[in-house]
Amino acid sequence: MLDLGSGLGRHAARMAALGAKVPAVDSSPTQHQRAAARYPGAPGLSLVCAGAVAHLRTADPYDLVYSVREAVVVAGPVVVSDLPPMGWRATPGPGG
């Protein structure tokens, strides 16, 4: 299970306390430091200060991705794209 945008790590710490192995990823160094101070050495919890795309480029696949901010819960394959904001165009598939 991955907690994206974990902030203070409260949800990730709760899931870890229930037995899950949870990387809690947040891009804010301040939030990362606060979470580290709040949950030092919590079993099953690893706090990661990184952006989502940067983390996912090097991480093993996850069975579940959890994000309260974006309300994303995914079971199954997750595809993350780091497309540039300009210079590409979606092309409709067959029949579309």
Rank of each mutant, 00 (worst) to 15 (best):
M15V: 01
L8W: 07
T30F: 10
V68A: 08
G7L: 07
H55A: 01
H55G: 03
G19N: 05
P61N: 07
A71N: 12
A36I: 03
G41W: 12
R89V: 11
P61H: 02
S46M: 13
D63V: 03
C49E: 14
A12H: 01
P92E: 14
D60P: 08
P92F: 12
D63S: 05
R57G: 03
V73E: 12
A50H: 10
Q33I: 00
M86C: 10
A52L: 10
H55E: 02
Y39I: 10
L18W: 06
S46K: 14
H32Q: 05
Q31C: 08
V25T: 06
A13T: 05
V22P: 04
V53Y: 15
L64F: 08
P85W: 15
T30A: 11
Y66K: 03
A13P: 03
S81D: 14
W88R: 11
G19W: 03
V74F: 07
A35Q: 00
R14K: 09
R14L: 14
Y66E: 06
P29L: 06
V73H: 12
L64I: 08
P43E: 01
S6H: 04
G51E: 14
A90P: 11
G41E: 09
G7Q: 00
G95N: 11
A37Q: 12
L2P: 00
K21D: 09
L4I: 03
A37H: 06
R69W: 09
C49Q: 14
P77T: 09
R69C: 07
G93A: 13
V79K: 11
P92D: 14
L83Q: 13
T58A: 12
R38P: 03
V72S: 09
A16F: 00
P40N: 06
L4K: 02
S6Y: 02
L56M: 13
A20Q: 00
G5S: 06
H55P: 04
A35F: 02
T91N: 07
L2E: 05
P84Q: 10
G95A: 11
M15H: 10
R10W: 05
A36E: 14
A50M: 12
A52Y: 01
Q31R: 10
V74N: 08
P43L: 02
V80I: 08
T58H: 08
L47K: 12
W88D: 01
Y62S: 01
S28K: 04
V79W: 15
A37W: 04
A52Q: 09
Y62N: 05
L18H: 07
P77E: 15
S46A: 13
V68S: 09
D3H: 05
S81V: 15
Y39E: 07
A13L: 02
A54H: 06
V78N: 00
P23K: 00
P29V: 02
G41A: 09
V80F: 13
A59P: 03
G5Y: 05
S6E: 01
S27V: 07
A59Y: 01
V74E: 08
Y39P: 06
A37S: 09
A50D: 15
G44W: 11
K21A: 08
H11A: 09
P85A: 11
R14Y: 15
G93M: 13
V78R: 10
T58M: 02
L4A: 15
A75E: 13
L45C: 07
A59Q: 06
V72C: 15
G93Y: 12
